[in-house]
Every structure is written in C-alpha cells, then in structure tokens.
Design a binder for these strands. Structure first.
Length: 723
DNA sequence: GCATCCCATGTACCT
DNA sequence: ACAGGTACATGGGATGCG
C-alpha cells in the first residue's frame, strides 16, 4: 500500500487508519478542511496544509535571475523556482517560467496585482481555479471515491485511493428532504419535511419558530445531503429570514458559516429526482470538485475542471479563462463549418422500421481516434480530450449495460440509471465544449474534425445498410432509420452488429417501429422535414419527436387530444387496417373534440399556454403574446424574472388591444374564463393535421365540411384523394 | 383601406 | 460557461389591389 505522505508536524499523536468517502472539502484560512464519511456511518473532520502556488512567464527571459530576486523579495512569497514549461498546447518549445509559492491563499490576489503592475510578466498560469480544485488536483483526490486515510490529531497524514469503480451503490450519505412554503423569497409560512416524496412533518407557527425548529431538526438529524426545491438558494433564503429575526442558525457543520453548507451537500429537488446522490457522486468524481459545488455547475464548467486536472497531471500550464476569437469569412464558414449529417426523411407512413443509434458517437470518436486540441493538427500521443472522455465513457457503458441485466426499478437498477444519465449529460457536452468560445483550451479545428469524422461514419453506415439490402428512410447525426419489408427484430439487430463491427463504434437497435410517420413541412407541404416524426413501436408504446405533443408550450388539452388521436389511429395490426378501420374512428374523435372546443365547454386550465420569458420585458422588439403577459404582470407589481414561464390563455386573438388578447392565469378566477374558441379550435385542427395529414386530412376542408350539416366525415378524406 | 406576403424575432426541439 | 441544425408561430412592415 502506498501513502502520499504530507509534510506535517510530527507530534507523538496516535495515527489512525480508516476507510470512507470524502463528502466535502474547502479551504479555510491556510488549511484544507475535509469532511469524511466513514464506513461505520460516522463522520470526521480533518485538516490539511494548503499553500497555493502559480506560474508567471517573464516578458523578457534574459533578466530572469534579477526578476527571481525581485519576486522573492515580496513578503508573501515563500519560494520561487525557475522551471521550463510549455506555455500553451500549441507551443513548439518550452519556455522559462517562474514557479511561485505563496505563504497563504489570501495573498494570491495581492501578489499577482503587484507582479502585474510591475510590467515584467507576459502571462500568469494556474491562477484561474478555485483553491479547493488546486488542492484536490494536487492530491489526485476525486471526492466521494472510496479511500483509506491515515490521520493523527485531526490532521490528514496520508490518503490511498481504493478501487470502487465497479461499485453501484452510492456512499452511505444521509439525506434530508424539505421544502419552504411559500416558494420565493418572502416570509416563511411553513417548512415541510419529506420521506421520499411523502411529507411526514410540517413546521408551523410563526416564521421565527419555524426557522428555529428547522435548525434544531438539522442539528438532531445531522444529514449529509439537503434536498430542497432550490438547493443552495433555499439555504440562503433561510439565512436571510433568520437575520430578520436576529436568530443564529447553522445549516452547515461549521459554527463559522463560511461555506453556508460546510460539510453538507445542498441539492436541487429536480436534480435529486433525476440523478439522485449517484448523479452528484459522478459529477464530483469526474470533475474533482466537491459535490457541494459541482452538483449545481453547468456541464462546461465540469469539463473545464477535468481538463485542468488532466493538464496539470501532464505538467502543462493552465491559461486564464478568456474567450478565443477566430475570424473567418462567410465563404469559409459556408465551405467548412458543417454540423451533423442529415438525410431528409422519406415523408409518409412506413411499416416495420428500425432506428439504429450510435452509442456516444462523439465521445467515442474523441477517445478512439484521439482527437484533441493539441493532436488535431499533428497526431501525437494521448490527447487531453481523450483523457477527459475515456473514463466517463467506460463508466457510462459499464452502468448502462449492467442496468439491462438488473430487474427494472430495483434499487441497483435506479442507481445504474442515475449514474449513466449523469455521465451521459457530461459526455454529450465534451464534444460541444471542444468548440465553445469559453473553453480555455478549445479551438474550432478540433470541433470540426470531430464533426467531420462523425459525418463520414454516418455516410459509411448508410452505405453498409444499403449493401445489406435495407432501405435508409432517414438519418440524422448519429442515428439511421432503416427498413426491409420482411425484416425481423433479429435481422435489424444483426445489421446493427454488422455495422458496429465494420465501423468500429457501437451501434444498437434503439426503437423498432410498427408504424412510423415522417412529416412534411407545415409551411411548405411539398418538402419533408427532419426532426419531426411519430409512430408506434412493436411493444405497443408510442414514440414521437418534435411534434406538438413534445412541446411544453402546447396546451394540455391539445396534448391529450393528440396523444389519444395517435392511439386510436395506430390501434391496428397493419397499414390496411389503419386506413380501413381506425381512420374513421380517428376522424370521429377529431369531430367530437372540435365540437367540445367550439362549444366553449373545455376547462380553461387545460388550455394554458406556457412560454419562457428569456429576457427582460424592455429588451423585446416584438410584442409577442407571452411578452404582453409579462407586461400585464409587471403592471400589477409582479416582476417576471427572465427565464420564468409565462402562463396564459388566449381570450381573443383578433382583439385590437394586445392586452385584451391574452390573460395571465394569475388573473383568472376559479369561475373560469371564456377562451378564444376559434383560435383553440385552430390549434386542435393543426395538431390533428400533424397526425392525419398523411391520409389527406386538411383542417380548412374539415372546417368547411363541419359548417355543412349533416356531414359525412369520410368525405374530408375522400375529397382529397379524388382532387 | 384592406388583404396578403415576407421577414425578423423568438421559442422550442433534435442529435 | 455546449454546438449546430431545424421547425414553426407571431407581429409588423412592405406590397399589392381596388
């Protein structure tokens, strides 16, 4: 067993050796504070030395000895060494740089300011990271990974990483779930405590009391993880309210509330529901950032952290964050910058179609073809990006495949699912982030090279399918839709296997459709459209993309209608049966729903449209309905924040005054509202046309037939076929 | 003065 | 602090027509 010894004081204290998981870590003063959950469920707080260091590149390397003397003279600098380093990934040769060691984390800002002002330096490196990142990077210590540690006198003496890469279960962190009522930053009326999704206790009786009781509850239960609707923001809210009553509360494990949730992990409700503790664990392991911080970070930030860690391991210097700019002419963009490959679908109704999808195609290209920022121009060695992607890729594959062998919905299945989903979220971004302007190592060439290979692979894939006797109906980026009339599920699986073997990347049968419809452009029905289709799988479930039903801005009534319509239509064993029997039933259903909308009998709550307000009301140039709604709210003192959903119904679209066209649901009473029947009927028929359009359904014709009673619904269809 | 077309703007979705 | 590609609705000005 190897220990990474620290240079600490060697007092005659008893050394302890324990196994556990790093739950939280942060820098306080000149120490790293480490909270470890141990195997027996107990918790320990250890400290460790932390002295920050960074690099500075002299503007003029000739007078380097003189500069060293100058820097050493700074009262906060403990040591300076001259080292030879690559100053960028593209750099052709090493340069002499100063490695500067500081006396205290707090000194960094001051020292850098002084050095900057001196004008003697061209650039600084390894400064644009959190201290805790640098500490964990130096220790090669991914939080939440199983470790054996040695300590004495509450000081860390050594760590040894244990291999828990095959472990499914998350560390035994204790969770507390709560919510604050009402939501928002006003006075607290109640705090609800939950077991799973069920409330089991409500704290009530005056804000001050509620807060104090909650504080006590935390102290008594000593949870490791705090789950609430807004995670850390809720903790801040609690603190603000407590201050109002001059009450001291302690949500974290430190008396000094430095990080408010020191030693505990605040998680957002929706994150917890989707990814669980496993998700936080995967993020922390990937990024080497404590889960308290990284659970909330956007993926790009996690990738940046991992990239910096990998760079440091290779002895590379970390440049500051900044935006890179690459200018190119419009023609260059036109010629070079292409995204994924798309084969326009063959519009219409198809039977027995297979959708074959590549498994993490982009990360696989990065890892297997070793595409990276520094290798893209001249291929050499293992690239940085490969190192970033490979472990996550293997981990994801492991959990995804393990999941399939487990009984669905058991604990282990859920953990595998959460881990693989969390890793997928990161992996998808590795490719996108490679060309992101904010990526300190990024460049467009890398991004485009990955893209180019992906396109090449997809075209090869299509060709193999054709050679094997299949028809390619549609293809987009990393998936292809193929069909052969007599093909069985096994035939499709064989094809997927054959392609995987030849291309060298994993491809799998993702969906086997009984029926699938590819749509035409609504704005120009002569042209077929990508990314909009729907169908029924062999197992009987519906599967659809891009259509109204997928959109959050579609009113629930329309969604329910469209889904039911699809069900009715596809309740058959063959296309013949669909046409002969189900089509008439579907039309009858359209008529029924149409009459209901037109009669005004639909509950307005089912007609609510919700659209996101992406910026401040003043910044809009177009007076769109949801902007009008935002203005309505502003007028009444409710300021809708950018990013919030505007929920409204359409009262009368034709109204000249835009404020009377729509109404925010905030102003609608229980009694109800009279909605714009014409408009909602129109939306209904558009949703119907999406589903029934292939059979010749046309909303205008439907409407005119509806005016004439009695009507024979089939005429709506027949009319088209004969015309 | 009114209907119609076109385009910029904006949201949401797919991979 | 993920990219690029795609679809579609909406408002409002430009355009055409009488």
């Amino acid at each position: 067993m190897r220990y990474y010894q620290d240079l600490g004081s060697c007092r005659a204290a008893e050394k302890m050796r324990v196994k556990g998981w790093l739950l939280d870590a942060y820098i306080a003063g000149d120490k790293a504070i480490l909270w470890l959950k141990l195997e027996d469920g107990s918790l320990i707080r250890l400290t460790d030395q932390y002295r920050p260091d960074f690099y500075a590149e002299p503007a003029d390397s000739d007078s380097i000895e003189e500069i060293v003397g100058l820097v050493l003279n700074h009262p906060n600098v403990e040591d300076v060494r001259v080292e030879e380093k690559f100053t960028s990934l593209e750099a052709s040769g090493k340069k002499k740089v100063l490695h500067i060691y500081l006396d205290h984390p707090k000194s960094q800002r001051r020292v850098i300011k002084t050095l900057e002002d001196s004008g003697l330096f061209r650039a600084f490196f390894n400064i644009d990271l959190l201290h805790i990142q640098r500490y964990l990077f130096h220790k090669n210590w991914p939080p939440t990974q199983r470790v054996e540690i040695e300590y004495a006198d509450s000081e860390l003496r050594g760590i040894n990483l244990l291999d828990d890469s095959r472990e499914i279960e998350p560390p035994p962190f204790k969770t507390l779930i709560y919510s604050i009522e009402p939501p928002g930053d006003g006075e607290i009326q109640e705090i609800t405590l939950y077991r799973g999704t069920r409330p089991y206790h409500r704290l009530r009786g005056g804000e001050k009391n509620i807060i104090m009781n909650f504080n006590q509850h935390i102290a008594a239960n000593d949870p490791d993880i705090l789950v609430s609707p807004h995670g850390y923001d809720d903790v801040k809210h609690l603190h603000r309210r407590a201050e109002k009553h001059e009450v001291h509360i302690q949500i974290g494990r430190e008396k000094a509330s430095k990080p408010l949730t020191a030693g505990r992990i605040p998680l957002r409700w929706d994150f917890y529901l989707e990814y669980g503790i496993c998700g936080a664990v995967e993020r922390a392991r990937f990024s080497l950032v404590p889960p308290r911080l990284c659970a909330d970070w956007p993926a790009g930030k996690l990738i940046d952290s991992r990239q910096c860690y990998e760079a440091m391991k290779r002895g590379l210097l970390i440049p500051g964050r900044g935006f890179y700019i690459e200018s190119r002419t419009a023609l260059e963009v036109l010629l070079r910058d292409r995204g994924g490959f798309i084969l326009a679908p063959e519009a219409g109704l198809h039977e027995n179609v297979a959708e074959l999808d590549y498994e993490s195609l982009y990360p696989n290209i990065i890892a297997k073809e070793d595409i990276s920022y520094e290798t893209v121009k001249s291929r050499c060695g293992d690239g940085l990006l490969k190192a970033v992607a490979l472990e996550a890729l293997n981990r994801r594959l492991y959990f995804k495949h393990l999941k399939r062998r487990l009984p669905k919905e058991c604990k282990e299945w859920l953990w595998c699912d959460q881990r693989s989903k969390a890793l997928k979220g990161i992996l998808v971004c590795v490719y996108g982030y490679s060309g992101c302007f904010a990526n300190r190592f990024g460049n467009i060439a890398t991004f485009e090279e990955i893209n180019r290979i992906a396109r090449e692979k997809l075209v090869e894939t299509m060709n193999i399918a054709l050679e094997e006797g299949f028809q390619v109906v549609y293809a987009d980026t990393d998936s292809i839709f193929v069909k052969r009339e007599d093909a069985s599920r096994e035939d499709y699986e064989r094809l997927a296997y054959e392609i995987s073997r030849k291309i060298g990347f994993p491809l799998a049968l993702d969906h086997h459709y009984k029926f699938v419809v590819f749509l035409k452009r609504r704005t120009d029905p002569r042209i077929e459209v990508a990314k909009r289709y729907f169908g029924k799988l062999q197992d009987g479930s519906l599967h659809y993309r891009g259509i109204e039903l997928r959109r959050q801005d579609t009113p629930p009534f329309i969604k329910d209608f469209q889904e039911k319509l699809m069900r009715i239509l596809f309740d058959a064993d063959s296309i013949e049966e669909v046409r002969r029997r189900q089509l008439a039933k579907a039309l009858a259903y359209v008529e029924e729903a149409y009459r209901r909308v037109k009669s005004g009998r639909v509950d307005w709550r089912k007609l609510v449209i919700s659209k996101r307000l992406n910026k401040g009301v003043r910044e809009y140039r177009c007076n769109l309905p949801h902007v009008t709604v935002a203005k309505q709210l502003s007028l009444r003192g409710l300021k809708p924040a950018p990013g919030s959903l505007m929920e409204y119904i359409i009262l009368n679209e034709a109204e000249a005054n835009p404020y009377r066209r729509v109404a925010s649901i905030a102003f609608l009473k229980e009694g109800g509202a009279s909605y714009d029947r014409e408009k909602y009927a129109e939306l209904l028929l558009e949703a119907a046309e999406t589903i029934l359009g292939v059979f010749g359904f046309n909303k205008e014709r439907f409407k005119s037939k509806m005016e004439l009673k009695p009507l024979n619904l089939m005429e709506v269809i027949k009319g088209t076929l004969s015309s």
